[in-house]
Design a protein around this nucleic acid. Structure first.
Length: 564
RNA sequence: UGGGGCGUAGCCAAGUGGUAAGGCAUCGGGUUUUGGUCCCGUGAUCCCAGGUUCGAAUCCUGGCGCCCCAGCCA
């Protein structure tokens, strides 16, 4: 349960209040929570909220948090997911210690408890088909009807259930059901299925079992076995709580856990549904589970989002029971906030435009001192080579600039950051009229970027020495979906953005950028935060744009377009 | 429609009968060798209607709206 330097202290919420009260009143003597993923997909940012909640509460109340895989449906579960889930939780900064469990560890116990229910006349084997069971379930307004097999003798139930276990019956032919109340207004209580026959290989138990418990029959009892005191889950399980409690009350379980529900996270421009995420991957809409556009933990990691930023984000959105949709901007803010503090600054030019300083000596190089991180003096400085020919950003020059454009233009002087003031004296174009080169003069008195006469150019540009530029591919990312509420008007896949990824070739970066380790995010000054992609090699550097910097100039331009 | 929840600013969210925190976003302004960061300023009478009370977002009544449930998924 370690949370290395979590910036904003977790504020309280209704769940923490319940936990505190339970402790205060002696209802529980220690706090045990659990994070219970089903290994049928990768973890996403919604899970991060739950993980932070469960591990956070355990740590704050000096308790413990278990990692328990809810692996009761072998048809959808895979070892790959078991592995990725553990890696992602660790990366997020949480530790379950020795408390790693699997619901499948409890299959023997659960089986015994099922037998116990049969013995006490509270469960029976039903021969109805899935369709027939559905037909007997009734509707929201009409009660269900009892199955003709509901009053089977205990011995017959015992025998049949035993034979289900032995594999005598094909999938779907028989189930074990709890005998509760077919007329209950809560549909979950209309004789829920406890066990189904599934001749499937389980990632953990192999072919030992051919009957598997349903979620409802496994979850609460697993909590009880582990001594979980507060079983925190999402709102859709609220109607299951009576059933959760029913099992706890009707079985000789070793403890009495309590289920508490909270609202799951929703994000604008994002889909957090495993069903959809699996399709995005399988249908090739993205590069994989860890595509930088995916809201998965592995995707966010590949995108360059620091774990701390994700933790800060889930800490600032709060925990409640009201359905809500958080604006992605809040996530982006939390990430920028961390990155601004820790990311080292570098120069990189995405769309290079040649700039030649005509009065600068040919062949000579100067090493300019550049600050690594203005927010962190301990990050020190570095040397950046400066030469007669440079590359600057195409967007930083306009031949006929609008009033609020503060960058380079014919006859105008700007500062080259950490270097000199330069003035544009001429523009060179190719046959088609495209600008291919800028001629400038520099003021030798402004070395380092300050003028002795106090002149202050309106603009400061980043640049790269043409002699020592390292080529790189840069991938620009944007929201995966084009609207804040994907799928709100029809097919969600039709809302997939067509420009969520833009791959730029021929970008030029500072030589030091070749050494950025995987997992570190740096700032390309004036552009944004970038990190090496997993595809990056020494021969072919590849950077992902984590997030752009807040850009008031872009905002002004957009407004101008709108007003015009 | 039966059951279970929820409803405080554009978004998230405090508030637990005493006169509406905070964050994000927005829009102004200041600082600035990143049009970044930072700093300052900017908005609500709490779904609606009645009622109780000296006093209600908080209590009561009645409406309205939204979400979840009819898998041998979790």
């Amino acid at each position: 349960m370690s949370i290395e330097n979590s910036s904003p202290p977790e504020r309280s919420d209704f769940i923490r209040e319940i936990v505190a009260a339970d402790l205060r009143e002696g209802t529980v003597s220690e706090v045990v929570t659990r994070f219970p993923p089903e290994p049928n997909g990768y973890l996403h940012i919604g899970h991060a909220k739950s993980i932070a909640l469960n591990f956070g509460i355990a740590s704050e109340f000096d308790g413990r948090c278990h990692l328990r895989f809810d692996d009761t449906n072998p048809i959808k579960e895979e070892q790959e997911y078991i592995d990725s889930i553990q890696a992602d939780i660790r990366w997020l900064g949480f530790d379950w210690g020795r408390h790693l469990y699997f619901a499948s560890d409890y299959f023997d116990q659960l089986y015994e408890w099922a037998v116990h229910l049969i013995h006490t006349g509270k469960a029976y084997v039903d021969d109805l088909s899935a369709d027939e069971i559905r037909g007997h379930r009734g509707t929201f307004t009409e009660p269900g009807r009892d199955s003709p097999w509901r009053e089977r003798a205990v011995d017959e139930n015992l025998d049949l259930f035993e034979r289900m276990r032995k594999g005598e019956f094909p999938d779907g032919t028989r189930v074990l059901r709890a005998k509760i109340d077919m007329a209950s207004p809560n549909i979950n209580l209309r004789d829920p299925v406890l066990y189904r026959v599934l001749h499937a290989e389980h990632p953990r138990t192999g072919d030992k079992w051919c009957i598997y418990p349903m979620y409802d029959f496994a979850h609460g009892q697993s909590d009880a076995i582990e001594g979980v005191t507060h079983s925190i889950c999402t709102l859709e399980f609220e109607d299951h709580r009576p059933l959760y409690d029913w099992f706890i009350e009707n079985l000789p379980v070793p403890s009495r856990p309590r289920q508490i529900e909270f609202a799951r996270l929703n994000l604008t421009y994002t889909v957090l549904s495993k069903r959809v995420l699996v399709r995005l991957v399988n249908e090739g809409h993205v590069r994989g589970w860890d595509d930088p556009r995916m809201p998965t933990i592995s995707g966010l990691r590949r995108r360059g989002f620091p774990a701390e930023g994700i933790r800060d984000f889930v800490g600032m959105i709060g925990v409640g029971k009201a359905d809500s949709v958080v604006e992605v901007e809040m996530l982006e803010h939390a990430v920028r906030d961390v990155l601004n503090r820790i990311a080292v600054r570098r120069f990189a030019v995405l769309h290079p435009l040649k700039l030649v300083i005509e009065n600068y000596p040919e062949g000579s190089t100067e090493e300019m001192d550049a600050v690594n991180n203005p927010e962190d003096a301990s990050a020190g400085t570095r040397k950046v080579p400066f030469t007669r020919e440079l590359w600057i950003e195409r967007e930083d020059f306009m031949e006929d600039p609008p009033k609020k454009f503060f960058r380079l233009a014919p006859g105008r002087e700007v500062r080259l950051r950490y270097a000199y003031f330069v003035t544009c004296t001429d523009v060179v174009k190719d046959a088609s009229g495209e600008i291919i080169e800028l001629c400038c003069t520099y003021d030798p008195a402004t070395r380092g970027g300050d003028s002795p006469d106090g002149r202050k150019p309106k603009g400061t540009l980043h640049w790269i020495s043409a002699d020592q530029a390292t080529p790189a591919e840069v991938r620009l990312y944007d929201h995966l979906f084009s609207r804040p509420d994907p799928g709100a008007e029809g097919d969600l896949f039709a809302d997939l953005s067509t420009n969520s990824e833009e791959v730029l070739q021929g970008c030029l970066v500072e030589p030091t950028l070749a050494d950025v380790p995987l997992g570190e995010t740096v700032q390309f000054e004036r552009l944004g935060y970038f990190c090496p992609d997993t595809d990056s090699t020494p021969d072919q550097l590849v950077f992902n744009r984590t997030l752009g910097l807040r850009d008031t100039w872009a905002k002004l331009q957009a407004q101008g377009k709108r007003d015009a």
